[in-house]
Amino acid sequence: MRRGGFTLVEILVALGIASLLLGVILSTTLGQRGLYALDQNRTAANQNLRAALDILVADLRQAGERLPLDFPAVEVRNGTELVLRRNLFDVVLSLCDRNGISGNQDNIPVADRNPPRNASTEYIEACRFRDEDGNGFDDRIDAWRNYRCGLDGDPACQTGNRREVVRVYIHDPSTGRGRGEWFDYDGEDRSGVHIHKGNRDRWQNSYGPLSRLYILEERRYFLSGTVLNLAENGGGGRGLVGDVVGLQIKARAGNSTYTDFPPPGVSWTSLEYVEVTVRSRLGNVERAPSTRAVPRNVFSH
């Protein structure tokens, strides 16, 4: 008669079967975890890229608002950088210095009380002193001062208040794409025809008569390392999306495709669309969504 219990052979067989079952279960579990992680990476990559593209497309559609044909409202640089601009204020000033400005000049004449007799019609129209309210300041300077001083919610002007400093873009359209740069507008002098450049940096370029001054918004998209960055109004960039390994931008205009846009002689208003492709890699997952959009303001010119 056999005593209770298991033989050594039975125990070994049971252990073998248990090990096999545990191996199958463990392999299945690890496989499921891998698939889950892969799916999580894929979802995260898609969400990040979609969010970045949504922001970019929204900016692209607003680009060019209240800007003229000869202003670079949309720029593509080397196929890897996109610059979008729109005007924020209807009053645009002109540079009314017959010798232009350069170097350290920080008082910018934007009106002329005594234009020369030989001045062009364009110069007189842009720079003629206008003072309908008789306060001694050109009416356009009045408008800019009211805009500047109201930025902090209080219409009264306060000297030294950094919340009343406006970023202004000066642009000379006379050469190619035109030269341009940002500066801080922080006040006006008592002449009634000058505004003041607040930052102490020298002008990067020289600007001729009738260069224009805009209160506008600029948003520049570019790749730095593996981060898609957004820089605003000439400032440094801030990261939007990480794990980006490629950014490709193309502009389509006049049946041609450009990675540098606009070329000489072509206006931004000829745009058919801008195509942006963002390539992202997260783990082993790589995605490269692409989108096309056109500034709605091209249809108003």
Score class of each variant (00 low, 15 high):
R190K: 07
H196P: 00
E125W: 07
G134L: 02
G178N: 13
H196M: 06
H194N: 14
W144A: 05
E122M: 06
S120Y: 09
G180V: 03
S206E: 11
G160M: 04
D172F: 06
E122R: 05
F183G: 10
S174E: 12
L151W: 08
G198H: 01
R145Q: 12
R179A: 13
E188Q: 05
D133I: 02
R177Y: 06
R140Y: 13
Y207L: 12
E164N: 11
R167T: 15
C149E: 01
Y207S: 09
Y169C: 06
D131F: 05
G150H: 06
D172L: 07
E181F: 01
G150Q: 06
C157N: 00
D152Q: 05
R162A: 15
S120G: 15
Y147V: 12
H196Q: 10
G160T: 00
G198Q: 12
C149A: 09
I141W: 08
V168R: 00
R202I: 12
E122Y: 06
F129G: 09
W182G: 02
D186Y: 12
G153M: 12
E164V: 06
Y147T: 13
K197P: 06
A143T: 08
F137L: 07
D138A: 05
D172C: 03
W144R: 02
R177G: 14
H194T: 00
H194G: 02
Q204L: 11
D139S: 15
V193Y: 02
V168S: 05
P173E: 04
G134C: 03
G150W: 10
F137W: 04
G176Q: 07
E122K: 10
I141N: 03
E188V: 15
Q204V: 14
S206N: 08
R162C: 02
S120F: 08
G136C: 11
S191R: 10
R162I: 11
C149D: 09
N135S: 03
R163K: 09
W203P: 14
V168Q: 02
F183P: 07
T121M: 06
C127W: 09
K197C: 02
R148M: 14
R163F: 06
R162Q: 15
S206G: 12
E122G: 15
D139F: 09
D131T: 09
